[in-house]
Amino acid sequence: MKKPFNSIATSSQTHFEESEEEEEIESSSEEEKSDDTIDSDEEEEIERELAEVTFGELQKARADGTDSISRKPQTETKRRRANKNRPMELSSKKPVRSFRQVIQAPKKVVRDPRFESLCGNLDVEGFRKRYNFLFENNLPAEREEVQKQLKKARDPKVVSELKNHISWIDKQLKFESAKNTDAVILSAHKKKEKEAAKHGKRPYYLKKSEIRKQRLIEKYKKLKASGKLESFIEKRRRKNAAKDHRFMPYRRPNNNSEQ
């Protein structure tokens, strides 16, 4: 009964030993191949270096054996673009900078004509004189046309749009008239101050509040000359009374008097 057991054991041992021998042979062959590849690479490098050495240096090295051939240090070749408009190829091993100029585009120069000396200085008086026809002729004529359209319109949306347009024109005309009066007041004041400066007096500059007061005085003078001053004052009084009435407190109910 013991013989078959021994025969099986011997067969497994022989199979295991054969596999170990095969592995050792394969590993030794791989090492030899790797050594051969390394030697071949080194030989190729030496051949390349010798090809660059001059004939005189080779003769000295062979004659004395003292002069050793100096190997050139391996320097990284700079990558160049085939064309300046193409992107440069970079290795993926090196980290890329977070901010870099990919395309060399020309910078856009933004110029504001208000602050550029190339555009010249703004002449406010000349500008107002050149474009005064808009407020004297165009806007009043446009207001009359919109007023005619408002009478014919029946759609509530169109009516509201036309009313808003009329109110906008009125605001523009009112604002421009106030500007014109301020300009007239300032010009008259400057003339007076120039004459006073000739006599050695210091110039006095008007404040905005003083300009506003003079504007109101001019307005009252015009209304008085046209005979509309009393009606204007009455309208202003009613308007102010309505404003004050909103802030007046209501009478508190007195329960004792009712009882």
Rank of each mutant, 00 (worst) to 15 (best):
S7V: 10
D170I: 07
H189N: 05
S29W: 00
K194D: 04
K148C: 10
C119A: 15
V53I: 07
K191W: 00
E76I: 13
K219S: 15
S29F: 01
E195T: 07
K235M: 11
K171W: 01
F55M: 10
K129G: 13
L162K: 09
E258Y: 02
S12E: 01
K171H: 02
L206H: 05
K3R: 15
K243A: 08
A9F: 04
E43D: 06
Y204I: 15
N85M: 06
S29L: 09
I103H: 01
A183M: 15
S117I: 13
E193F: 01
E210M: 09
D112N: 14
Q147M: 14
R86Q: 11
L186N: 04
A51P: 03
K108C: 09
R128S: 09
S117F: 03
T14M: 13
F247H: 01
R130E: 10
E176S: 10
E144Q: 13
E24Y: 00
F115D: 05
F247R: 10
A9K: 13
S19T: 03
I69P: 03
N132R: 12
Y131H: 02
A61S: 14
S91T: 10
E32G: 04
P106S: 11
D67Y: 13
S98W: 00
E52F: 00
S117H: 02
A188V: 08
K107G: 04
L134R: 08
F99W: 00
S177C: 07
A141I: 05
V184L: 14
K213Q: 11
L223T: 12
H199P: 02
L134D: 00
G200K: 02
E26M: 12
E42P: 00
K228F: 00
S7L: 13
A197G: 05
P113Q: 07
E258H: 05
S12C: 07
S167V: 11
